[in-house]
Amino acid sequence: MLEIKNLHVKLEEEDKPILKGLDLKVGSGEVHAIMGPNGSGKSTLSYVLSGRDGYEVTDGAASLDGESLLEMEPEERAAAGLFLAFQYPVEIPGVGNMTFLRTALNAQRKARGETELSAGDFLKLVREKAKALKIDAEMLKRPVNVGFSGGEKKRNEILQMAMLEPRMCILDETDSGLDVDAMKLVADGVNALRSKDRSFLVITHYQRLLDHIVPDVVHIMAEGRIVKTGGPDLALEVEQNGYADILAGAN
């Protein structure tokens, strides 16, 4: 599914290397977690994969189902099946959540040569998906993320994921700013989307999200590289001993 080889990335403006030879392979249907201390390059990885401006790939490759991602525009990556759930979902006043979802869904369908969804079919679909995430009709009508609580914003990200049905989902610190109940709701939403054709890369600082979204593989990232890979137990080890011990062991 997702394959990253020897990825080197620097900040365009500061000439500062962030990713320094990162290798990662996520198979179809697998859930991988990336943990790591602040500044290890976790969020940069998510932005580079989804095509945000401001980063320069100096070496290496990244592909989705064998198709190289790095030359694609962000919207092309989305149409190819990549989705990034933002750590800080962006507020867009004056644009209704429904309009946003429908525009995005139909743009992707159009890019893939599929027919656009009619207003009626779209409405049916969005109501059904929203219900599962406890997103009420009022929230769908409001402008994108404006006045949403932290939990509502994250649920809205998962709703977009459910609507757009991507093959590769990246969750960037989805647990940040959530209380336990909100986190559980979000995790349930994610778990409902797990399937043999869909993979997840869950980026998190803390282990607690991984109690709810149980990963197949856990990677520890430091200094712009994956320094250790293991099973779900590795996350527990981080929780108990912190990163310092693991990083010391890895060196």
Partner: peptide
């Protein structure tokens, strides 16, 4: 630019 990227990351052309 952040909002523009957000929309594009959802598949909406620039």
């Amino acid at each position: 630019e952040t909002a523009l990227f957000y929309l594009r990351s959802r598949g909406v052309p620039r």
